[in-house]
Design a protein around this nucleic acid. Structure first.
Length: 627
DNA sequence: AATGATACTTAGGAGGCGGCTC
DNA sequence: GAGCCGCCTCCTAAGTATCATT
């Protein structure tokens, strides 16, 4: 019969279009395009819409039906099927090369809250005596005070950098007094912040709810933009708050002051005819530009490394999704030529040119060991880390024979984020000989590949295949490994838990290849023991077979099985981080095809955020997908 | 070929939150 | 109902890659 349907669309344009498509009259209101469009009420016949129909799922809408008592069911919002969106206004006409959008409108970044001075009874002490600090000096003191129980503050470099920068911001009177960090006592300030965070945790449910609503409001208002007619989520819409720089590893700049970002530092990028974001009152933007060849909405230069930071879209956005898809398509093209490339670099191991030999050995490492390219870095500006092209002689050891294997190369170096790469690999004789040659008459601190850098390597790769660069090998090898491992490990007879263990193991093989490590979780030992205790308890409850309690027996056995699987998975995963490869290296279509083939719900392997990011793949892949 | 600037992807850790157990 | 635990989200640092300039 006739009924009433409410729906929300990502934008007014989409809402009106959907209404038109159905030949329905929509009662819409004036919209603010940056806010979610209010529910649109439509008068329809029940047969023309059903929340499960394909027609609806193709649109960039979500529907919720109104039941008889007026309550809504299955509420939803958003462009969940962006790749198939039917909104016509921006219907994906081909854009010129390098053009990323036609329309971009947003509110600009949300600025970090201003500094709130300490209450009068919370004091800083110098040399045992209370000392009232100027506002700017006090703010920086709180940055240090907050970190007091962190290991960082015990490091000399951290302390020196902090103290240097702090003194620069002091008044001249303060500079005369505060000359020695050891005489500074931040403990009272530290306690103030600890108490404050405790108080926050102890808030009532209602108070917490209120805080959440306030945060949600900010998210609604600043967290979205309109890109080519669609309301899209922004990734990082807040400016980074001021604080002390925390680099990873042995960073020479740790402890330096990261200054507050002001509107005057910010460049806004949007479309000319859009509503230009308003700077906060009394301020102005550094610049407003209309550059549709880039995807960022705002940018500023940070003061530690003097590099640019950007505000960009969330991975769920169409723009990012298509880029991600493209990345995997490039990796799939590598699949077609990788055999040829391998044959060539093996031949190049014997080249007369030193340069070629180095290139060929480096490429072999990148391919076989999934090493990163290894750009040059400015010395003394960052932690001393390396990738393939920047390896030094001191990072490898050659063993003609080791543990029964021939031609073993022992790698030991710090890679990205100062994560240690340690591996012993048996290599081809020619590789081994070449390495000996490259190391001849060199100091430990000399470059292993002194005739090679990433730009030479990438130029070569580009000539072998359009779009090929060093990182594509990581993507390719990660994805192909997942596909192979899934094939080898999955048993269609297994229950879902068993299949998931196989999936995790396949994922783990990739994470190990890519050296994605994590520090063992602090609670690992304890929670492992808990799990094992649970296993023992369950075992005790299994009845003797002769008691004929078949049902109970079966249930307990299943439970036990599940627990054992869980324990195995946990142990194997102790120091491995699966997330990074899952999010960045594994073609999601492989996983989705696997789910479909073996009847595993996609939610079991991808959480909500991941499903949003991989919406393009979920739409696209069927069970026959081959990487 | 070296250098510098820019834009974009990849990365692990901290902390919050929600669900489960006792 | 409290406390614990594990997952998820946020955060922002640290890479890669490419292009323009010298």
């Amino acid at each position: 019969g006739k009924g009433r349907v409410y729906f929300s669309a990502c934008s007014p344009f989409c809402a009106n279009f959907v209404a038109q498509q159905w030949g329905l009259s929509a009662c819409a209101h004036e919209f603010d395009p940056l806010l979610p469009s209010p529910a649109v009420s439509l008068h329809v016949t029940a047969t023309s819409v059903s929340p499960s129909s394909r027609h609806l799922s193709l649109g960039c809408i979500a529907v919720f039906l109104v039941s008889k008592n007026g309550e809504t069911e299955t509420p939803g919002l958003g462009c969940s099927h962006r790749s198939l969106c039917i909104c016509p206004r921006w219907e994906e006409e081909k854009k010129e090369d390098g053009v990323k959008w036609t329309q971009l409108e947003h509110r600009g970044p949300y600025f970090a809250p201003l500094y709130e001075p300490l209450p009068d009874d919370v004091q800083f002490y110098y040399n045992g005596k209370p000392l009232k600090l100027s506002l700017a000096t006090e703010e920086i003191a709180t940055f240090y005070a907050k970190m007091l129980d962190h290991e960082y503050t015990t490091k000399e470099i951290f302390q020196n950098n902090f103290f240097n920068d702090w003194r620069k911001e002091m008044t001249s009177d303060e500079q005369k007094i505060i000359k020695d960090l050891d005489k500074c006592d931040f403990r009272e300030i530290h306690k103030y912040f600890v108490d404050k965070s405790e108080a926050r945790k102890a808030l009532s449910k209602e108070e917490k709810q209120k805080l959440k609503e306030e945060a949600d409001k900010i998210q609604e208002e600043y967290g979205y933009c309109i890109l080519d007619g669609h309301r899209e989520k922004i990734g990082n819409f807040k400016t980074e708050p001021p604080g002390l720089f925390r680099g990873r590893g042995d960073h020479p700049k740790m402890g330096m002051l990261k200054r507050r970002i002001m509107p005057e530092d910010v460049v806004i990028n949007c479309s000319k005819d859009s509503k230009i974001p308003e700077p906060p009152e009394g301020h102005k933007w550094k610049e407003v530009r209309f550059d549709n060849t880039v995807t960022w909405l705002a940018s500023w230069t940070e003061n530690i490394q003097n590099t640019l930071k950007y505000i960009m879209l969330n991975p769920s956005s169409k723009l990012k999704g298509e880029k991600d898809w493209q990345k995997y398509e490039v990796a799939r093209r590598l699949k077609d030529v990788v055999h040829k490339i391998r044959a060539q670099y093996q031949a190049d191991w014997k080249s007369k040119e030193m340069k070629k030999r180095q290139r060929a050995v480096a490429l072999y490492f990148i391919d076989k060991l999934a090493l990163r390219a290894g750009n040059e870095k400015e010395e003394g500006e960052t932690a001393d880390t390396v990738g393939c092209c920047s390896l030094r002689v001191e990072h490898i050891r050659l063993h003609p024979e080791l543990d029964g294997q021939e031609h073993v190369v022992e790698f030991d170096f710090l890679g990205k984020d100062s994560i240690r790469y340690y591996n012993k690999v048996s290599v081809e004789k020619m590789v081994f000989k070449n390495l000996q040659l490259f190391m001849k008459n060199k100091d430990p601190s000399d470059d292993l590949f002194d005739r090679l850098n990433t730009s030479i390597l990438n130029r070569h790769l580009q000539s072998l295949m359009d779009g090929l660069s060093a990182k594509v090998f990581r993507t390719y090898n990660a994805s192909i490994t997942l596909q192979e491992q899934l094939k080898a490990l999955t048993n269609s007879e297994d229950n879902v838990a068993g299949k998931l263990l196989s999936y995790n193991r396949a994922n783990r093989a990739v994470a190990i290849l890519c050296n994605h490590q994590r520090s063992t979780p602090k609670t690992f030992e304890k929670s492992m023991q808990n799990l094992q205790a649970k296993v023992r308890q369950t075992k005790l409850r299994v009845p003797r077979p002769d008691l004929k309690k078949k049902k109970l027996l079966k249930r307990l056995e299943e439970q036990l099985d599940k627990l054992n699987v869980q324990a195995t998975d946990k142990e194997e995963n102790k120091q491995i981080a699966l997330g990074t490869s899952k999010l960045n290296y594994l073609d999601p279509r492989i996983s989705i095809a696997w789910c479909k083939k073996f009847g595993v719900p996609i939610e079991k392997i991808y959480n909500k955020t991941q499903r949003e990011k991989f919406a393009w793949a979920i739409d696209m892949a069927d069970e026959d997908f081959e990487f």
